[in-house]
Design a protein around this nucleic acid. Sequence first.
DNA 1: TAAAAATGTCACTAAATCGTCATATGGCCC
DNA 2: GGGCCATATGACGATTTAGTGACATTTTTA
Lengths: 240, 240
Amino acid sequence: MRAKILLVEDDASLVELVTYNLEKEGFDVVRTGDGEEALTLAEEEKPDLVILDWMIANLSGIEVCRRLRRAPATANLPIVMLTARGDEADRIRGLETGADDYMTKPFSPRELVARIRAVLRRLRPALQGGALEFAGIAMDTTAHRVTRDGRTVQLGPTEFRLLRHFLEHPGRVFSREQLLDAVWGRDVYVEQRTVDVHIRRLRKAVNAGPGGEELADLIRTVRSAGYSLDATPVAAQVAA
Amino acid sequence: MRAKILLVEDDASLVELVTYNLEKEGFDVVRTGDGEEALTLAEEEKPDLVILDWMIANLSGIEVCRRLRRAPATANLPIVMLTARGDEADRIRGLETGADDYMTKPFSPRELVARIRAVLRRLRPALQGGALEFAGIAMDTTAHRVTRDGRTVQLGPTEFRLLRHFLEHPGRVFSREQLLDAVWGRDVYVEQRTVDVHIRRLRKAVNAGPGGEELADLIRTVRSAGYSLDATPVAAQVAA
DNA sequence: TAAAAATGTCACTAAATCGTCATATGGCCC
DNA sequence: GGGCCATATGACGATTTAGTGACATTTTTA
């Protein structure tokens, strides 16, 4: 999942510079130079983080910061303040108003990106690898939660580990032996056929639709080779 | 609750300066100038945050940072790096190694305090005397009071700390071992199953409705993994 | 000091998960 | 189509794991 960043800045050349660097690093960027609009966008676009210049039109950055903190919808939105002022007093005021970090112009875009990553690493572990996703299946490893198309999927511990392994290597085919090593552990002795059974349990849980019907099977059986997580169902190949 | 800070720095005068300012602001300070000792102290003292100088004896700051991140017990410990180097490359390297913030000497003690507060405000809201809230459960950490949907909930000390830990990391699953570390303390020896009993007591207190009936259980049991505070009850899954 | 509250363990129960097998199903080659 | 082989499936007992009530002990409070 790409993180979305709201950039509130009215210096056009700086906007370009920062946007370029953020997008190069894989962030989605939403931009505005206006304080009022920033508040609206923060609500509507649901960014994962806000970069906020101190000096912007209509509302000062610090006022925007204060209002973002006050509104329940954005109270927890991470904010990185940006400013030309090097004053210690200003920096402290910014941090005390609720900013998570503070950078003084001129700054290096790379450092900005590094700081943004540091903040996001903390607040959205999901954006940093705690979350896995493939073809509608989402797994939050820290919350130990799996959903398919938004609906919660109930899995036993072994099925959970099995699915995690597949999500970590989507598309790749694993033999039963490899799956036993990776999911059960290298020193455990269980029948290879046992893998089949857990694959079946995993399929049953993941492919169960809301009304009891079957969804597309995302686990592909590769005859005499093993299994893989795969987005192209057999039916689609036939139909095509 | 006072926050405990581990200061890893070998410049004696700087240690004095920072310690003075931190203690004035109400922090407890543990100090060392040695990298190896820093790792030990981080485990044993369970600080809420580490201030880490780049240049210290025995192990470089960045190596300490890396090891702290690697050890499960300290992987989530907030780290503020401190250094004489102003190099952008160094700053970025520090942040990418897992530091949460970075300050360059000479720095203002007041700004350091402000940055520490900003980091802690995020990660340990309870330390700031603030209120915690999740899905109808509200906790006032200073008044030591808990309510659910407005009604007061009566908790024993251990259940209170347990709930506070959950509220600080909503949604996240903790193993019994992690809960013992975080809630009971690293040096206490109690049976892992004791956690179950306190979970039960916490559930009983929190889920008791006004008329004696049961409210939705907000504590989720994750088999073979642990427990988490979670807003999506099982009933909702079934109904969906 | 006595009463009350809180704590940590244990034994037991309840529930879920696991691994295996026997059998059914389905693809593939001749 | 027949035979062969690999996989799918349903059932089942064994095992693992969590929930629960009780209890002795310690700590706090009155």
